[in-house]
């Protein structure tokens, strides 16, 4: 392995250099989930070979229900389209997974650095998102395991609910991440914003 691990890794939110902190009883907490692996899979979910390879390598079959994601072993597999999924991995796990999937003949693309993930959580998270997102996030229509691609403010975002705090992961293209981060701090300002280190 080359020594690129020694090179500085810079994420779009590092660049903003927001110091961690904020009130304990903040309405929302935001944190960049730095340098996650992201792989884009394309394939026919009704093709057993495809399903088997994904099952074997990722550990779970891709969800075929739209607007859903499944969590398995620190991975999240998010439905993006009828033949398209995003696998989000902990930092560093993408390379091995990419090789395994590609070896199995799956059309897979490394998009780890195309976007970053912002974790938004807290009792007012829903109200903050509602200021820029037209999705109905009420628990009756959006809950843990729900996922959607939509817009937040002026930025295309993929979001999925990870817990009932409630917590959401917001996937956003790197070049829009700073804008979204700023937007979240603005929209959450009224409720108190806590920033956690990535």
């Amino acid at each position: 392995m080359a020594d690129h691990g020694a090179q500085a890794c810079v994420t779009p939110i590092d660049v903003l250099a927001t110091p961690p902190g904020g009130p304990r009883d903040a309405g929302i907490t935001i944190r960049e989930r730095r340098l996650l692996g992201k792989l884009l899979l394309r394939g026919d979910p009704h093709d057993t070979d495809f399903n088997d390879i994904v099952q074997r390598t990722v550990g779970t079959a891709p969800p075929i229900t739209p607007n859903r994601c499944v969590f398995h072993d620190a991975l999240a597999v998010i439905w993006l389209g009828p033949d398209e999924w995003l696998v989000v991995t902990p930092p560093g796990r993408e390379d091995g997974l990419l090789d395994a999937l590609a070896a199995g003949g799956v059309a897979v693309t490394d998009v780890s650095d195309q976007s970053t993930v912002i974790r938004l959580s807290g009792p007012r998270a829903r109200e903050v998102l509602a200021q820029g997102c037209a999705l109905d996030l009420h628990p009756r229509s959006f809950s843990v395991g729900s996922a959607a691609q939509s817009r937040i403010g002026r930025v295309r975002t993929t979001l999925w609910q990870v817990d009932d705090r409630p917590g959401y992961d917001l996937l956003v293209s790197c070049s829009f991440a700073a804008w979204l981060w700023t937007w979240l701090t603005d929209a959450g300002g009224e409720f108190g914003v806590r920033v956690e280190a990535g």
């Binding site: 810079v10 660049v15 403010g153 002026r154 829009f176 937007w183």
Partner: peptide
Amino acid sequence: GRTIGTLFDPVRTTAMDP
């Protein structure tokens, strides 16, 4: 709304921007 000032339109920057 809040689509004013720095939030008026996203400004996209590259990794080398700093």
